[in-house]
């Protein structure tokens, strides 16, 4: 159950003692008190429901609070008033386990370089670079995977974050049925339709092109 108290919080605002709540996103602990770290609305989530996404707090929280405490978090409201194209969301970082949508930038025999565009259902402002290495393309017959038979530059791919990677790249994987290419354009420049797990067809020319196709839901 989410008891949404529509109260506002400003960074630095005292939210309560650390023995009363578990810190959620947008909060921090200072001298065993919980404070807001973001500008937004306060939400208290009861622990009856599975604990909310307590993200990136491992470094701040001194010790995991007892599980029965409600989680308090501060979320940035979406400025949805007016045109929907101007919807403003707080920037998020891709994290291990997130399903992301990305565009293929370039391919090499060893990997595909992609730009991560959407993380979960949040459209990212910044472009984060990701890598799909040849061994992470599919779960079976990994040694027979060819990158150029799986992705082409311009494709839109659904993938999962498997590692924060090196300083520049997130490592992504498409080794699941529902992961892979979801939008592809043929060499003739037409949007194609998937026909099976490894092929897309151009509706105008009728030609088939190889891809690691994501299973449509």
């Amino acid at each position: 159950m989410t008891t949404s108290a529509p109260t506002l919080a400003i960074p630095g605002q005292l939210l309560g003692h650390a023995s009363k709540y578990q810190p959620g996103p947008g909060t921090h602990i200072h001298e065993s008190n919980l404070y807001a770290s973001l500008l937004g609305t306060i939400h208290v989530t009861q622990p009856a429901k599975a604990p909310g996404p307590v993200k990136r707090l491992t470094k701040i929280t001194p010790a995991p609070a007892p599980a029965e405490l409600p989680t308090i978090s501060v979320t940035v409201p979406t400025r949805s008033a007016g045109a929907e194209h101007q919807q403003k969301k707080r920037e998020v970082l891709p994290e291990v386990g997130n399903v992301v949508l990305c565009r293929v930038i370039r391919i090499t025999p060893r990997q595909a370089v992609v730009a991560i565009l959407v993380c979960g259902d949040t459209v990212l402002d910044a472009e984060w670079q990701g890598l799909i290495r040849v061994q992470d393309v599919r779960a079976t017959e990994k040694d027979r995977v060819k990158i150029y038979e799986s992705f082409r530059p311009g494709d839109i791919v659904r993938a999962e974050v498997i590692s924060l990677g090196d300083q520049a790249n997130y490592y992504l994987s498409t080794a699941r049925n529902e992961l892979g290419v979801i939008l592809a354009t043929s060499e003739a420049g037409n949007a194609m339709h998937p026909v099976n797990w490894k092929e897309y067809r151009d509706p105008e020319t009728g030609l088939l092109e190889l891809r690691k196709v994501a299973k449509p839901y």
Binding site: H85, Q87, L101, L117, V118, V123, I156, L183
Partner: peptide, 8 residues
């Protein structure tokens, strides 16, 4: 809509 706008 925002996702569609971003992707294509």
């Amino acid at each position: 809509r925002p996702v569609f706008a971003k992707l294509s």
